[in-house]
């Protein structure tokens, strides 16, 4: 039985964000490739997106007034946790096919798990968010599982 995680918090497991659809443009790929100091022509020309480009495509765009004072967009998928200091998290990504200009992609995020573990300096809360990126035909393009740790 968990000490920190109330039934109210655990009830958020399974919560899903509204799907978001974005179009991939050559200009966006070029900007991402330049900003990451990529050296491959196919990416710098925007012919195909480098891996991890989906982060750029689906980073939350929210009004200034909805950013926290440190400039971060608040993830509305998450409940209010009793621990708030974020520690290193991890990513587990599967790339099903490359992304190219003109692709209309839809991302759906699901809060798939919340659990507690005891760390050396006290309790830790873990949560996992799965983001599935699909194309217009409904085929998966990228699957990304993020695990974050709070202390």
């Amino acid at each position: 039985m968990s000490d920190l995680l109330t039934e109210d918090i655990l009830a958020h497991i399974g919560k899903q964000s509204a799907p978001r659809t974005e179009i991939v443009t050559r200009r966006d790929i070029r900007k991402y490739a330049v900003a990451t100091n990529n050296r491959q022509k196919k990416y710098l020309d925007g012919d195909v997106a480098p891996p991890l480009f989906h982060l750029h495509l689906f980073w939350d765009v929210v009004p200034l007034g909805e950013l926290s004072p440190d400039g971060v967009s608040i993830d509305t998928l998450l409940p209010k946790f009793p621990l708030e200091k974020a520690m290193a998290g991890g990513l587990d990504i599967t790339y099903h096919r490359p992304i190219t200009p003109g692709d209309w992609l839809t991302a759906t995020r699901t809060l798939t798990d919340i659990y507690e573990k005891s760390g050396r300096s006290g309790p830790l809360i873990f949560y996992e968010v799965l983001m599935e990126v699909c194309d217009n035909a409904g085929e998966r393009v990228v699957s990304e599982k993020t695990t974050r740790i709070l202390r």
Binding site: D28, K31, Y32, V34, A35, T36, L55, H56, W59, D60, V61, L67, D70, G71, V72, S73
Partner: peptide, 11 residues
Amino acid sequence: LYNASLWNGHR
């Protein structure tokens, strides 16, 4: 440029 490309405003 990288944070602008993501739209990441983290101070």
